[in-house]
């Protein structure tokens, strides 16, 4: 160009060349499908699952205590990441349920729901530990307006405390009552399967604290994992399957009275 004037032809030619040059390095990258990308990450070979054997639970509350200490949920506030429920089914068909302080001090009171119960009238009674189900289809993640809560590649649902706006929509969306507002951080709080521990090869605090082996955590993608074996071979139950949340906490000895 001698006269420094950019004609339309020049402009188009330069633009096409420029675009071609810019596009070249892009072709050097391989475009992965989401499943390929997932497989490429080592984490994807892990899917954390949980097994609760209600037959073994005696309602000592050690798990609740351990969880509160481990995860710095203030001990004396009634909210908790995990809790134990006591079910007392009477011979007349009535069911009494309670969980004083989430069961953290154990169930030392004879009274259930502030009622004196004559042991002769009890048809059956049992304890059911509860925690976040780390659903495969988590409604809490779906409703978070800012994406502060998310599902990790290995299936655990976490909350970003620096990004949560505290609207409470996730708390409303959880059918299991697993979420609450952290009294200090003032953001949504939930059970993380002790993510900081399990990703380092440790067990969750509640699993370690349980003296009777009622709680187990395992990798559902590993067929040789003890939890996976039980889930595959035994008759197990999940909570509130009608919601379609696909819980990944499995129960042995679930009863239809369990809420």
């Amino acid at each position: 160009m001698t006269n420094m004037k950019l004609t339309r032809r020049d402009f188009i030619m330069t633009a096409v060349k420029g675009a071609a040059v810019a596009a070249l390095p892009l072709s050097a990258f391989k475009i992965l499908s989401p499943s390929e990308a997932k497989a490429a990450i080592k984490e994807a070979n892990v899917r954390w699952g949980f097994l609760v054997d209600t037959h073994k639970c005696v309602g000592c509350g050690f798990c609740v205590k351990a969880c509160k200490n481990e995860n710095e949920v203030p001990y004396d506030v009634p909210v908790t990441r995990t809790w134990v429920e006591r079910y007392v089914v009477l011979k007349d068909g009535k069911t009494l349920i309670d969980t004083p302080h989430g069961g953290r001090e154990g169930f030392t009171e004879q009274k259930v729901q502030e009622k004196d119960v004559d042991p002769k009238n009890i048809a059956k009674a049992f304890f059911v530990p509860k925690l976040c189900n780390q659903c495969e289809n988590p409604p809490c993640v779906q409703v978070c307006p800012v994406g502060a809560t998310y599902q990790t590649g290995n299936g655990v649902v976490l909350v970003d405390r620096t990004w949560c706006i505290g609207c409470g929509y996730c708390i409303m969306a959880c059918p299991y009552g697993a979420r609450f507002f952290h009294p200090i951080h003032k953001v949504a709080e939930k059970c993380t399967f002790c993510y900081h521990r399990i990703t380092k090869g440790m067990k969750t605090a509640c699993v370690d604290a349980c003296p009777f082996g009622a709680r187990k955590i395992g990798n559902l993608k590993d067929p040789n994992d003890p939890v996976t074996k039980i889930v595959m071979t035994e008759r197990i139950g999940i909570l509130k399957d009608a919601f379609g949340t696909k819980p990944q906490v499995f129960y042995l000895g679930l009863d239809d009275n369990v809420r």
Binding site: V143, P145, V146, G147, W163
Partner: peptide, 18 residues
């Protein structure tokens, strides 16, 4: 909101399934 100062995040990182 428990964290009202973060309200603008709804515009910054809208999570459209919500």
């Amino acid at each position: 909101l428990q964290q009202p100062q973060r309200n603008f995040e709804v515009m910054l990182t809208p999570h459209f399934t919500s």
